[in-house]
Design a protein around this nucleic acid. Structure first.
Lengths: 198, 198
DNA sequence: TTTTGACCTTAATAATAAAAAAGTCAGAAG
DNA sequence: CTTCTGACTTTTTTATTATTAAGGTCAAAA
């Protein structure tokens, strides 16, 4: 039953958000849902596939939110809005380390790595389309939209990493650090897009 | 004698470049120089201070090379030249992990961390001056030059980190990866500076 | 003043044992 | 027939210990 799978995924997410993927056991997820562990294994062959389900759900939610954004007229505002959305996701799912090179070994299986690479590729393509549209409208200079999208995203995740590394090495960055990170992202995004104009 | 200290530092650098700081022992450095270990400790009270000497030497060489750059007229070309220099240093001293959040625990002492933070600050100030000059000349829009310098540097080291993480997780990135990294840095730098113009 | 062999102390590594979590299965419940 | 479970096995982590290697010292020599 697909409804049950959803329930399990949501239960897993709750634990993952709080304690991270590695520190969450299948037993804990099962107990939260008041079922036995073999029940989980009835719906998911192993922990990896449950994590896959979680990742897919999170990214589905992300694209769902993106699609609901009110359509801004200029690229800067569009990207600024996306940064806000991404920032909320970053905070919410921080413990899952979906964003940057996982410090602990959360995603050691080939399958999970592949899935994340796929999600990243999709992300680049999404931004590529945005840039291409802006190019077609003459808003920014024509160029290799996909390549630029990758550079843009790598710049932002790079600066994210730098900010996180720089801060205290506690589990979670402080509110202050998160705010600073967000500002830096917006600032860089603005400069970057301005740098693409004629 | 200062001459002897220099010799020891150079010997240490040779080992560090090849095997990294952690995998280099004081005995090995001493043997390379055909002296005994206590000789080293006569000139440097501990390994940490020797590493400090090495770091200072490397950064002195870096600023030495920077000062010898032929003075370009526009900011883009100036920064492009610096990226080339930095890239050579990055390759040469890669095993020392001077650039990014050390994967292994090379710099665990407070003193070394402080020294590197100081070097980073100096670096930001160096770029700050460059940007300020360009602002005074009206080459780029007026603004907080230090803040922009930090953002610029963080963008570049961020993208460096992303590229290194993305590649194979061998000790050294391949020539191909290094070339791609260099190109990305140049591309980002160009866009960034263009984004600062009026 | 500089250097060293011999020595001591601390930190990293390897080996092992103990604990915890992943994963399985025969059979029960609906 | 689909869904679920208690009891079990296997694998992975974690903690403990032993061992080695590296950092660091000192009295004495060059």
């Amino acid at each position: 039953m697909d409804k049950k799978k959803e329930l399990i995924i949501e239960g897993a997410i709750k634990r993952f958000i709080h304690y991270g993927i590695n520190k969450t056991t299948m037993n804990e997820i099962a107990d939260d849902l008041s079922v036995s562990k073999p029940s989980l294994y009835y719906y998911f062959p192993d922990k990896g596939s449950l994590i896959q389900g979680v990742i897919n759900k999170v990214f589905d939610d992300y694209y769902d939110l993106l699609s609901k954004e009110k359509p801004e007229n200029c690229l800067e505002d569009k990207l600024a809005g996306i940064i806000d959305i991404r920032h909320r996701f970053f905070q919410k799912y921080y413990m899952m380390h979906l964003s940057f090179g996982s410090s602990d070994a959360s995603f050691n299986t080939e399958e999970l790595k592949k899935l994340l690479i796929l999600k990243k590729k999709k992300d680049i393509e999404y931004y590529g389309v945005l840039l291409q549209k802006a190019m077609d409208l003459g808003e920014i200079e024509a160029g290799d939209s996909l390549n630029l999208a990758e550079l843009y995203l790598q710049s932002l995740s790079g600066i994210t990493f730098i900010c996180i590394m720089h801060g205290n090495k506690e589990l979670m960055p402080t509110k202050k650090e998160l705010k600073l990170l967000h500002e830096k992202q917006q600032q860089l995004s603005k400069i970057f897009i301005k740098g693409l104009k004629n």
